[in-house]
Amino acid sequence: MASIQVDRVWKRFVLKRDRPDSVGQLMVQMLPWHTRPKSTPFWALQDVSFSVGPGESIGIVGDNGSGKSTLLKILTRTMLPTSGRVAVRGKVSSLIELGAGFHPDFSGRENIVLNASILGIDRRTILKRMDEIIDFAGIEAFIDTPVKYYSTGMNARLGFSVAIHVDPEIMVVDEVLAVGDEAFQRRCDERITRMRQSGISFVLVTHGLSSVERLTDKAIWLSHGLVRAAGAPRDVVAAYRGSVERN
């Protein structure tokens, strides 16, 4: 069974104003009279801990820039924490940024195969599920059009549809679902509920506070990289709402 354990994770970004981003700048910096401006460390996550048991789902709320996306990147292993430990047990599937894993020049169909192989599913298996994926996304008419011509909503639909069809044990979903229309969001809600019942864990980042209450077992509220509140979704959401209203 799948589980996630995040243990005292810190993530530091160094805002190096002087990081040379070309060989030319690198050479300029080697000049003896070149003085370096100070770089300021920035803690995107500070001592964040939580755990998600098998079949459990967690919602993460917080303002923009509070560290939610950084946390998700660490969970999907695209980023390493500065200190602390993350243990992810089980096969992860993710829907993080719009268009992540899509190649703009390839058609929807080609991108399904490409995306699935990034998510660890081989070609034969995914071809068998092709119709199902296209069907759930509801974009049959455009499936052979290059993805760069897709609308934001179509992009999210396709991304979500692939992500749920690769036999995940853990689903990591960022805000992206909010761009789908009412009907699609309802379909996603329904599917998420069904997947949760079959024991799949969810990590859900969203500004749609009602969906946190509806779809998760517990929640944490991140603020400036710190966990401000953790516990039952309703309480966490209420606390977060309260702080937003106070400002």
């Binding site: 992860v92 599937s93 993710s94 490409l114 990034i118 660890g120």
Partner: peptide, 11 residues
């Protein structure tokens, strides 16, 4: 050139 592929999941 393939930055979009990198943010999905680790490979």
């Amino acid at each position: 050139g393939n930055a979009a592929l990198l943010s999905k999941l680790y490979f």
